[in-house]
Design a protein around this nucleic acid. Sequence first.
DNA 1: ATTTACATACATTTCTGTATGTATATAATA
DNA 2: TATTATATACATACAGAAATGTATGTAAAT
Lengths: 209, 209
Amino acid sequence: MVRKTKEEAEQTRKDIIEAARRTFHQYGVSRSTCERIAKAAGVTRGAVYWHFRDKAEIFFAMREDVFRPLIERTDALLYAERFADPLDAVEASLTEFFRVLDDCAVVREVFEIMISRCEYVDEFASVQEEVGRPALDFLDKMQRMYSKAAELGTLRAGLDPLAMAQDTWAYTSGLLNLLLGCQNGTDLGQRIPGMIATHMALRRGGRGV
Amino acid sequence: MVRKTKEEAEQTRKDIIEAARRTFHQYGVSRSTCERIAKAAGVTRGAVYWHFRDKAEIFFAMREDVFRPLIERTDALLYAERFADPLDAVEASLTEFFRVLDDCAVVREVFEIMISRCEYVDEFASVQEEVGRPALDFLDKMQRMYSKAAELGTLRAGLDPLAMAQDTWAYTSGLLNLLLGCQNGTDLGQRIPGMIATHMALRRGGRGV
DNA sequence: ATTTACATACATTTCTGTATGTATATAATA
DNA sequence: TATTATATACATACAGAAATGTATGTAAAT
């Protein structure tokens, strides 16, 4: 039994991506040979090379599968009309991002691979640029939200929207790296919603935390 | 001419570490073969295996050479007696950290290698823990400094020292990652002192930024 | 005389890409 | 609808490159 139906072939493709994710996570990207990935997926290298040109292409497919829906989700919250105060939207969006990261092992694994199990050189150098793009987009989104909050008067008086956006930008990136990079054993995951609330409280009107 | 004097041998060792740094940075750690490192250092693999057990040991030596003096330097500022306000000490220490990163190519390269050119699995998994330790130490230091600032009344009223320490902790980690990870082309480096000032201003008494 | 600081040579393993084989799903045709 | 042709979805086999660790050789420092 060699030739499969289109659906079965598509399933094989998904199996390979999932196997690659587990393998990348366990052994790191560079030590994850196509043979290892194939075995983990229950196929041979022939199947892997049929569906993907090389290892990098598997990596990109894996990343795309996880990134796209996640960004759609957080953006939906960021722009949800039910939030009168843009600061509430930002807080909800950030909290949701880290909640998904805490809840969904697949998403968490992909981020862990990208943060600490991949070397960004040669064919993966472009990944870093692609990761940089969402980061720059995020900075832009934050600036718009804080500007809107300034207009509405919910941003604490005297605070510069751009400066606050940069601060939140770095803060979020740091949270992500600390959470996935080196603090896996701690209870950081649980404390994150509170930390985000604190961060946002610093820029709301009224008294602090 | 084979046998060298002790001093010459020590120089060879340093040459290998420097060659490894350049090679790691260009090709990533896993693709940096001992042969490549040896060639870059102008020696053969024999010399490399004489001075180091394996590639991981070169990596650790390289890291240690850069980390130790850097932490001593920033700690010296953090605990300098000339700062009456702990918040000033924190700001000076953080600014100095990023200034060194901006000025010193060697330090920057090592951090770039650790952040985006090394896979933290197997023999390098321990590196991540070692990197995590200074991070936890830093969190602790920040909490002490903010607590002292709270006692002295320079921390803005209503702010919790621990919560502020966590915020600064994540913020700093994020700055580092954004600076070295994906924003190499931008002018982020120049803007960092201002960003740190903004970050600290958020927690000082009086009006904001 | 002995150890040091390497260079050279060797054996083994491992990974990659491609080439080839093949059974079957699917499309075309009659 | 039945038959045929072709493309698909892999598995298997092969060749070459490259990396690792070790073993051995050696000239000079100590």
